[in-house]
Amino acid sequence: MRRGLVHVLAWTLATGAAVTLSWWGVHTVMAGTAYDPPRALPITAAEATTQESKPLASPSPAKSPAPAPSATSARPTPSKSPSPTASGQVRSYDTDGGRAVFDLGETSAALVSATPGTGWSMQVWKTESWIRVEFSSGADRVSVFCTWHDGPPRVEVGTY
């Protein structure tokens, strides 16, 4: 009986140590990949009445094949609010998957906010010369891609 108890105690300690070490390793790696969440801009009453937005689409069971990537699947909506970095013009891009808002300066851009639509999820990638926001729902993907590496910032929206 005593020998069995020693074995259970040794197994419990070894398992606890393994779980702790694994958690610490994953925590260390994930802490290095986190980014600051985008900041939202306040919308004044005057802007709320003049700013157009299309309702966010919810996924339907019967979907037609996705069209080829095009910049026409999103409407940029200029905003007169000050940007978080006060460097350019804040533009909103409404897509079937959600909304992405960028602060477009003369030589760079910043992500102000990104909000997925109902039933959609979102991922964000950032580098020194581009930002990509991808909305996904099942096999459907909508990508909002802002680049400024070879000139002023430009935004392309693609559905695939």
Rank of each mutant, 00 (worst) to 15 (best):
V26I: 13
R141Q: 14
M122T: 08
P78M: 15
T15F: 15
P78F: 08
R141T: 04
R141Y: 11
R75F: 01
R91Y: 12
V101G: 03
P116E: 11
T85P: 00
G151M: 09
T28S: 12
L5S: 15
G119W: 03
S58K: 10
S137R: 02
A31D: 14
T50H: 09
A110S: 10
P61C: 03
P82Y: 11
Y35I: 12
D140R: 13
T33R: 15
T115E: 14
W23V: 04
L41K: 03
Q123V: 06
S121E: 09
T28L: 15
S137W: 07
H27W: 12
G117K: 04
S81C: 00
R99W: 06
S83F: 00
Y160Q: 03
P42S: 12
R75E: 14
T95H: 09
A40E: 11
T107E: 09
W23H: 12
A100W: 09
W24D: 13
G117V: 05
I43K: 13
S53W: 13
W148Y: 15
A109E: 06
T85D: 09
C146I: 06
L21K: 04
R141N: 05
A100T: 12
V157F: 03
Y35A: 14
T33Y: 15
S22V: 10
I43C: 10
G158K: 05
F135G: 00
P38Q: 06
T127I: 01
S137E: 07
T50D: 04
S64I: 11
A17P: 01
Y160I: 00
S81W: 09
R91W: 08
L111K: 12
W24R: 14
L104P: 03
G105A: 13
P61I: 13
A10M: 11
I43H: 07
T44W: 08
F135R: 04
R3H: 08
A66S: 11
P42C: 12
M30F: 09
L9D: 05
K126M: 02
